[in-house]
């Protein structure tokens, strides 16, 4: 078995920023595409603001391992202040991808992390404040994931977002969430 029969994602965030919901949304969309999935956070003491990680696996074959994701294909960083605070590139190979929610340039991130692989940035916070009126970068950053990996199809994510939000927050705000994902998809660089 080649390990990479499974696509592995690690998301860095802070307690309360929705990293867990993001990983769940990703795998739910993948499941709707007929994939085998797994999503789980690395639970610590649950404290708002404390750095935390969450994992997701997507595969065509059943996933049996419960090992934490040690060598991710992609790392998503929801909170830019985590760069430099925690080792966001740990286990990320030279073919790996780093996506950071930031207004900084990829060159600046390269310097900060020393990572030589592909780095993408997206202003998920800016998009979120613009479209949703508050700082909720966890959903838009999924748009960036879709753009740079193609591991899931955006239309399945849209469907799941509708299922998740429509009843709770209404048509307008749900559409705003979808728009935010689409904009992050288009603006990631």
């Amino acid at each position: 078995m080649t390990k990479k029969a499974v696509f592995e994602i690690r998301i860095h965030g802070r307690g309360g920023q929705g990293a867990k919901s993001a990983s769940q949304l990703i795998v739910e969309a993948a499941l709707d595409q007929g994939k085998q999935i797994q999503a789980f956070p690395e639970y610590g003491p649950e404290r708002t603001g404390a750095p935390m990680k969450t994992y997701a696996r997507i595969s065509d074959k059943p996933i049996t391992t419960y090992e934490p994701v040690l060598e991710p294909d992609i790392v998503l960083v929801i909170d830019p202040t985590l760069v430099g605070q925690v080792d966001v590139t740990q286990g990320l190979g030279k073919d790996g991808i780093l996506v950071v929610n930031t207004v900084e340039s990829t060159d600046e991130l390269k310097k900060k992390t020393g990572f030589t692989g592909k780095i993408y940035t997206v202003d998920a916070t800016g998009i979120s404040i613009d479209l949703l009126g508050k700082n909720l970068p966890n959903t838009p950053i999924i748009g960036a994931l879709i753009k740079v990996t193609g591991v899931i199809d955006i239309k399945y994510v849209e469907k799941r977002v509708e299922g998740m939000f429509l009843k709770k927050i209404g048509v307008e705000k749900t559409q705003a969430n979808i728009d935010a994902i689409k904009r992050a998809h288009d603006e990631v660089k």
Partner: peptide, 12 residues
């Protein structure tokens, strides 16, 4: 079931 490992892991 294993607490957190199975109890909180989203699976098919």
């Amino acid at each position: 079931e294993d607490g957190f490992i199975t109890s909180h892991c989203v699976q098919n």
